[in-house]
């Protein structure tokens, strides 16, 4: 549960619930160079996903959970990158 802030890195643990989308957005707005550590994140609610996609912060570690990581990476993927 929740966001833990270390300087300009937000460490996300367990589940980021729908209520946390607004605080996350605010934090990212205040910290435009803010980066995320998602290693321990088990799931984040779609509202949070939307915030991340709109603000595109740097993700320093992807979630350990492969399903979550794959989906998130596809959100951050540049559209050009799929040309072989």
């Amino acid at each position: 549960m929740g966001i833990e802030i270390h300087e300009n890195t937000a460490v996300i643990r367990d589940i980021l619930s729908v209520e946390e989308a607004e605080p996350l957005l605010e934090w990212l707005l205040e910290h435009r160079d803010g980066q995320l550590d998602l290693a321990q994140c088990a799931h984040l609610h779609a509202a949070n996903l939307q915030v991340l996609m709109a603000l595109r912060p740097r993700i320093i570690t992807w979630p350990d959970d492969p399903a979550l990581a794959d989906w998130l990476k596809s959100a951050f993927e540049e559209p050009e990158s799929n040309h072989v």
Binding site: A21, L28, A47, Q50, D70, S74
Partner: peptide, 30 residues
């Protein structure tokens, strides 16, 4: 999002927005 993750790992996936993302300041997270 949970709904999608619950699906078996797909062969391909994409996440996008239906409209251009607004300026971060005017984003409505909900």
């Amino acid at each position: 999002f949970f709904q999608m993750i619950q699906l078996a790992p797909p062969c391909w996936r994409a996440l996008s927005a239906r409209e251009p993302w607004p300026e971060p300041e005017s984003l409505d997270a909900y």
